[in-house]
């Protein structure tokens, strides 16, 4: 993966304190970061908070970014870590059930099934590291090698997590089909 020259200029502009560059930086990556956070956390409000934190951390540590490496995986690493931390904190707090997957209502069809909703619900049943693998591989469309770099773990581990995630989710969907039939 090669570094985009425009990304490099954008980062240099951000480090120089140019507001226009900072705005462009956020706008360029907010879809990717927010998408990851939303799918990982399942709640729009939480995802927005965490995505903002991700950008603030990114700006704070932008001078540490290795310019020889692409920016996207670096940002995804920060986002994945923040999501994992948020999920761990959430695990220690009581979960309000009425807020589950509050980003999906507009896509629900009365009496019907929505594939995205099914996947999101199945995803919520997985372990956080399986979730991260699955989201990075499918939603961010990273390769196994890139997922391993983002999560800072061996490729073999990513493959194992991905296989288990697929199998558990397929099993979840199968059970849902049986229940609905």
């Amino acid at each position: 993966m090669s570094v985009d020259v425009s990304e490099l200029e954008l980062v240099q502009g951000c480090l120089a304190g140019k507001v226009a560059c900072q705005r462009q930086f956020v706008e360029q990556f907010e879809g990717m970061i927010f998408g990851l956070c939303l799918r990982m956390l399942g709640r729009r409000h939480d995802a927005e908070d965490v995505a903002q934190e991700v950008f603030l951390r990114a700006f704070r540590n932008l001078h540490r970014w290795d310019q020889e490496r692409p920016l996207r995986p670096w940002l995804l690493t920060i986002a994945a870590n923040r999501c994992r931390t948020h999920l761990e904190e959430r695990g220690r707090r009581p979960t309000p059930t009425d807020l589950q997957a509050d980003w999906l209502p507009e896509r629900r069809r009365p009496g019907g099934r929505d594939d995205a909703e099914e996947i999101q619900q199945a995803l919520a049943t997985l372990r956080p590291d399986y979730q991260q693998c699955f989201v990075l591989f499918y939603q961010q469309e990273l390769s196994v090698q890139e997922v391993a770099e983002v999560l800072d773990c061996p490729e073999g581990t990513v493959k194992t997590w991905l296989h288990r995630a697929r199998k558990e989710m397929a099993e979840y969907l199968r059970k849902r089909d049986i229940d609905q039939d």
Partner: peptide
């Protein structure tokens, strides 16, 4: 089952939520 999962994931991954974070981030 895996094919069904792949099919469902295709719908899930193409949906991109809209959000505007720039103002909030730059404000903070």
């Amino acid at each position: 089952h895996l094919q069904q999962l792949q099919h469902s994931v295709a719908a899930w991954q193409t949906w991109s939520p809209t959000v505007t974070l720039a103002d909030a981030v730059l404000q903070r």
